[in-house]
Structure formats: structure tokens, C-alpha cells
Computed example of a mutant assay.
Amino acid sequence: MFRRLEDARADISFSFEGREVTARPGDSVAAALLAAGLRSFRATPVSGAPRAPWCMMGACFDCLVEIDGVASRQACMTQVAPGMRVRRQRGAKALESDPAAETAA
């Protein structure tokens, strides 16, 4: 279903659920995971149904994952980095508040 349009060297590696995934420089996490054949990025909060990227431009939030311990990151809007640790997000995750933003308001 998903395939790369051109062959290029994939020389960045990161992990998804403990599995090594290779990516090309400039790939988003979502593009790299889809190219590696991975389709389920998160589970919905109510039913636990698997979800995958939909819009690939940051509008739908179906690609939320945990990256390096930080939940609710959009895989389609996050560029891969060497050694990144990515995990499926299961359900809704609370976002930590930013004390600096609260005092500025």
C-alpha cells in the first residue's frame, strides 16, 4: 500500500516498540513507520481500536505516539532523529502543563 517513490539510502535508525526501524534524512516518524510496513500507531481511548495516520499534515491527530517518553506527539509532524525511541500510544494521555505559559497568561 505505501511505498517509496525513489530509492535512497536509509541511514537513520530509531526504535519502535523495541524494533529497529531505518529512515531517510528528513522523514517524519509516520512516513518512516509506514515505509517499514507498520500500520497501527495508537489505540483509541474508549474502544482500544487501532489507529494509523490519516491526513499526514497534522490536522487529524490519528498518528499520536510516545517519543522518548513524551506522550501525544504527532508522528506526521515529527522528524526522525537517530536513536529516537517511539512507542504506540494507548488511550488518551494527559499533557503536562507548562508553568512558564501559565504565568504569562
Score class of each variant (00 low, 15 high):
residue 44 T to K: 09
residue 1 M to G: 12
residue 30 A to I: 02
residue 75 A to Q: 01
residue 4 R to F: 06
residue 12 I to D: 00
residue 20 E to S: 10
residue 77 M to L: 13
residue 65 V to T: 11
residue 48 G to F: 10
residue 97 S to N: 10
residue 83 G to P: 02
residue 63 C to K: 02
residue 97 S to V: 15
residue 69 G to D: 07
residue 71 A to M: 03
residue 86 V to L: 09
residue 22 T to C: 04
residue 24 R to I: 14
residue 95 L to F: 08
residue 37 G to R: 06
residue 11 D to Q: 06
residue 3 R to Q: 13
residue 83 G to M: 11
residue 18 G to L: 12
residue 25 P to R: 15
residue 68 D to Y: 10
residue 83 G to H: 07
residue 100 A to W: 09
residue 34 L to M: 10
residue 12 I to Q: 02
residue 41 F to K: 04
residue 6 E to K: 15
residue 33 L to H: 02
residue 31 A to G: 01
residue 39 R to C: 06
residue 30 A to T: 01
residue 85 R to D: 13
residue 104 A to F: 09
residue 35 A to D: 08
residue 70 V to Y: 03
residue 33 L to I: 03
residue 42 R to T: 08
residue 6 E to N: 14
residue 7 D to E: 15
residue 64 L to C: 04
residue 72 S to H: 05
residue 80 V to I: 04
residue 70 V to K: 11
residue 29 V to K: 05
residue 79 Q to D: 05
residue 101 A to K: 12
residue 23 A to C: 04
residue 31 A to V: 09
residue 43 A to R: 15
residue 23 A to K: 00
residue 33 L to T: 00
residue 8 A to Q: 14
residue 62 D to N: 09
residue 44 T to H: 05
residue 24 R to W: 07
residue 23 A to S: 03
residue 15 S to H: 11
residue 72 S to E: 05
residue 69 G to W: 05
residue 64 L to S: 02
residue 40 S to E: 14
residue 11 D to I: 00
residue 68 D to L: 14
residue 100 A to D: 13
residue 101 A to E: 13
residue 40 S to Q: 09
residue 88 R to C: 10
residue 34 L to H: 01
residue 78 T to P: 03
residue 49 A to L: 11
residue 105 A to Q: 12
residue 43 A to V: 08
residue 81 A to W: 01
residue 87 R to W: 11
residue 91 G to M: 03
residue 43 A to L: 15
residue 76 C to Q: 00
residue 103 T to G: 03
residue 35 A to V: 04
residue 85 R to K: 15
residue 61 F to T: 04
residue 71 A to F: 08
residue 27 D to V: 11
residue 86 V to S: 02
residue 24 R to E: 09
residue 48 G to I: 10
residue 61 F to S: 10
residue 53 P to D: 01
residue 48 G to L: 05
residue 7 D to A: 15
residue 75 A to Y: 02
residue 61 F to K: 01
residue 12 I to F: 05
residue 82 P to H: 00
residue 27 D to N: 14
residue 94 A to Y: 07
residue 14 F to W: 06
residue 77 M to N: 02
residue 78 T to L: 11
residue 43 A to P: 00
